[in-house]
Amino acid sequence: MTAQLNGPSAIGHRASAATHGLSIQDAVELLTVARQTAIKVVRNQETQMAVTKVIDDLRETVQGQTATTGDVIQRVGRLRALATAVGIPTLASVVGSATEAITELALSGAFG
Rank of each mutant, 00 (worst) to 15 (best):
A38L: 01
R75L: 15
Q65G: 11
D57Q: 14
M49T: 07
T52H: 04
V86A: 09
R59H: 09
T84P: 04
G64W: 00
R78T: 15
V42P: 01
A27I: 02
V86G: 07
Q25V: 03
L79V: 14
L79Q: 12
R59Y: 09
A18Q: 12
V33W: 00
A15F: 04
A85S: 14
Q45K: 15
D71M: 14
V33L: 11
T19Q: 10
L79E: 13
Q45C: 07
V51F: 03
S23M: 07
D71L: 13
A85W: 07
G64F: 00
T19E: 10
A50N: 09
D26L: 03
R59P: 01
N44H: 13
R59N: 05
A81T: 13
G21P: 01
T37D: 04
R35P: 08
V72F: 03
E60P: 01
V72S: 10
Q65H: 07
T37N: 08
T47F: 04
T52S: 03
V72M: 09
E46F: 09
A85P: 06
V51T: 07
G21N: 05
G21F: 03
I39L: 15
T90G: 10
L82M: 14
V28D: 07
K53M: 13
V76Y: 02
S23W: 00
T84S: 11
I73C: 11
I88R: 01
D71E: 12
V42E: 03
K40F: 04
P89Y: 02
G21I: 01
